[in-house]
Design a protein around this nucleic acid. Structure first.
Lengths: 358, 358
DNA sequence: CTGAAAGCGCTTACAG
DNA sequence: CTGAAAGCGCTTACAG
């Protein structure tokens, strides 16, 4: 369809309906105080003419302010993963500079459910128009979502999502699938008869939904699609201290001398790499997650064959943009937006480290 | 730095300088007719206050129109690669809907230098404000670039670039590096002592700059970083007909019985896959480029281990945005923007097929 | 060389 | 319930 004329304006609608632009504006914004008959007439014309407001003019005049709030884990020294999100959010904010949007960033201790709860209260005190957060703690996150739902505040989830919860959109990886991706890569670089060791490094594996789901995807690949015939061995390392890693790994390696590859379900591949480096073991292939500085170091040193990236900056960037578009433009796109699962090796890693959104 | 007040306006500058906003506007837009002394005074204030115009107001009022023109190969039945670019450009245009930007898309026959030349004339007749094009033919592209340079028309190159030529920006893969990425992947999945066959399918390999450069990167990996000790064999297949492929491949396979892997330097992996399928050969690993429908089919069937993607939609999307930002906002970002080199296997391919920009 | 004024398409009180 | 008017921050003739 090619439109011959110019874009239709409020003024045009008004003259078509034989009313003033003030009245048209009232029906567009549902401000009431319009006779039912007039309202219907205007709504029809709006429909027929496919009217959409000129955002430039609206923003220029409007005094409406949108306050967004993010609630994400605070980055720690060894976990640069959560440093990427602020970068992505700030890129989005730069693009939205002229749109009267503000963002308040609140962080919580990723180890503490209690701190998370405390920070959710801070978020609510700000009376946000929209919230973006990472549902690290399942039950606490469910509760927070339902409070926000009751208040009519839209929520974008990133990094993971919880089923049977109300939210506007999720932006992040398809966790199960990303386990399968790692499975295929591992299968390709591991001799057929060698054993494969899966490693979870976390306090309480049961509570950490995404590690479970990744591991399930990884094992699913071998059950249904892979060729490897070796044993699949799993080890849970309860804390990230060098000592614990050493004890657990020494033990498991002695028990299973036929191990060919390691799969690290979370972002702490570097801990295992440090262990292997210290022990002088270079015979294992290894695959893990996230482009932390230390992980990249060990990728380049050849300890890891691949890292899988989940685009943390892009998750955050798109989350902010999505909230804005929903609030400001009433746009609604896909609820589930699965970002591509990046396969990264030492040759292409540099292109992924530099965040391309700016 | 936190700015306490509101954004500075033309009006504020004017009152600081003791002149009217018209005069300020004249110095901002270099429209002359301003006393040197006044001009300098205003320029200083502009500097000190770090003034930037309100784009909303500018666009709302301005009658300035920007006409962009794209000149890209026309997609063919078997080459869906060039179908992706219009998608990316249209996504960009949707975002720019309110900015008075228009885009005229012109395509040329990728086989014909003559057609390309003819189409460059069409482009010039349109008097474009900015041009985005793919420099497929080297000498013709050099000429086109210099004509545009003389006319002061900014140029964004995608898909490849030519050294010693003037252009505003290049957006695309680092071609040599992408050859190295393919090299590492091949090395990982090929037994150490097996031979590796590199395949170029093109009329005139000498003229096709990016295939040469990829192949160079691929071989560079094995010379400097790889572990494979097998022979590196190269074959040039001069045309993409089934017959020619069959003849050439039959011949080379018979000559070298120790081949373990194939590297296809261009986007025609599916041709080799079809050949292997017909011959019932499933013993080779294979790596190629671009997520054409047929390539993806053979990736999923297991004939190819990996495809390497170069984000054609994103190249086109960012190209349009870059031209707009340069013309409209006077923004200048990096001249060389290397997009990440995507490693794609049958497990993550679906996330890459769906274009995320919308 | 400079200023005053109209107007882009909206939103927002205000008057009736 | 409805209309007329002011004004967001710019650009663009026009008058002097």
């Amino acid at each position: 369809v090619k439109y011959s004329g110019k874009k239709i304006r409020l003024k045009d609608i008004a003259s078509l309906a034989g009313v003033s632009i003030g009245t048209v504006d009232r029906v567009i914004h549902n401000r009431g105080e319009v006779a039912e008959k007039t309202k219907i007439k205007i709504q029809n014309i709006l429909q027929e003419t496919n009217y959409s407001p000129n955002i430039m003019a609206r923003v220029l005049k409007s005094k409406k302010r949108f306050q967004l709030v993010s609630l994400l884990p605070e980055p720690t020294e060894t976990n640069s993963y959560w440093q990427k999100h602020p970068q992505g959010m700030m890129s989005a904010m730069e693009e939205l500079e002229l749109f009267h949007v503000t963002l308040t960033r609140i962080t919580f201790n990723i180890q503490s459910e209690k701190d998370f709860l405390k920070k959710t209260e801070e978020v609510l005190l700000l009376n946000p128009d929209g919230v973006i957060f990472a549902p690290i703690f399942k039950s606490e996150s469910v509760g927070f979502c339902s409070i926000l739902e009751n208040k009519g505040i839209p929520v974008v989830l990133i990094d993971g999502y919880i089923e049977n919860t109300h939210f506007l959109a999720y932006i992040g990886e398809d966790v199960f699938r990303s386990g399968r991706v790692a499975g295929q890569l591992t299968d390709m670089i591991t001799p057929e008869s060698k054993d494969i060791l899966t490693v979870n490094i976390t306090r309480n594996i049961k509570n950490v939904h995404h590690l479970n789901k990744r591991l399930a995807g990884f094992l699913d690949y071998f059950e249904n699609s892979g060729r490897n015939t070796g044993k699949k061995i799993n080890v849970n390392i309860p804390d990230p201290s060098t000592e614990t890693v050493k004890t657990e790994m020494d033990n498991i390696i002695e028990l299973y001398p036929n191990i060919g590859s390691l799969f690290i379900s979370g972002s702490k591949l570097y801990l295992i790499a440090q262990y292997l480096e210290e022990r002088g073991i270079r015979s294992f292939k290894m695959i893990g997650y996230d482009l932390l500085d230390l992980n990249v170091k060990y990728l380049k040193l050849g300890f890891a064959s691949f890292l899988i990236g989940q685009r943390p900056e892009e998750q955050a960037y798109k989350g902010i943009k999505k909230l804005f578009e929903y609030l400001s433009l009433n746009k609604m796109t896909d609820k589930m937006e699965y970002l591509p699962i990046d396969i990264v090796n030492s040759e292409n890693v540099d292109f992924f480290i530099k965040f391309p959104y700016k």
